[in-house]
Amino acid sequence: MNQNTVLTQQKGAAFWKKNRLSIIAIAVLCVAAAVMLRTRYLAMILDFICIYTIAVTGLDLLFGYTGQVSFGQAGFYAIGAYTSALLSKNLGVPPILSIFIGALLATVFGVIIAFPASKLVKHFLSLLTIAFGLMVYTFVNSCSALTGGPSGITGIPKVSIFGLELGSYQSYFWLVAILMVLVLITKKNIINSRVGRAFIAVRENPHAAAGMGINVAKYKIMAFAISAFAAGLAGALYAHMIRFISPDTFTKDQSNMFMTMLLFGGIATMSGSVIGAAAITVMTELLQQFAAYQTLIYAVLILIVLFLLPNGTVGLFSKLKAAVRKRGQKRKPGKEGTPQ
């Protein structure tokens, strides 16, 4: 009995030592979120961070882990948003249900796109996804009968769960935050599973992966489907948060923004997509007066990441951590050496 408590204590200490940085970071984030939730504007930014994190997490599974590029995430984002908005507004489907229908429809499109994409080499894949994004954009922009054309859809219903209406940005935060955490947990589980290891094998060397008995096309399609689901979910959440959507939101700048967030945060990491989404969202808000040059900011960030920070912000952190640890190790022997 006593031994057991000691053991759990030791386990707890080991867990603390191993994960202390993440635990501290999460605690700080919770406090920051609690403070930010008191203001409507800051709560909106928080909501955006959660929504973008969901989309970027999906993209990370596709690009970071499976090595398949997509510059058309805005297309899935649009499908999710428009499906959910139209279903809930015109057919009276409860938004909480229509959000998931939107995400599922995006997944279906993801699979359709993935079939040819799983066979193409990288540049053609980039272009196929760009073309897909543009097709969705042109469709929502021109099919006025269904999507309202350039003027978009207004008066999208609010989300309500068990009679509880999430009308304000503050209350909406709980929905998007819970979904974000669920998506992140799912991502962690996928990565640590057979599927995740297959993704990484496909990224590192598709031929070797195929040689090991991995069905490369199947996993590529799966990665596409997951990323499309995440983007569709994010789009649907966006639609019910702002309660107005128009084609302007779903241009290729949006796809590039997701890519910038992912690269800036760091690919193939757990925290990268969160950090990237948060950093770029905050940066965009801070530089609001230069909104006309927004794409320039993305471009400069992409170039900085490409040339200076190949592993994004997360890579920078781990470099710093390694440097600090190195210095600590250097100092320790000296301290212990003197008393003798």
């Binding site: 690009f63 590029v69 540049h123 992409i302």
Partner: peptide, 12 residues
């Protein structure tokens, strides 16, 4: 892929 990204950045 990074070269493609670089040219996208250049185009922006």
């Amino acid at each position: 892929v990074y070269v493609i990204l670089c040219t996208i950045a250049i185009s922006m």
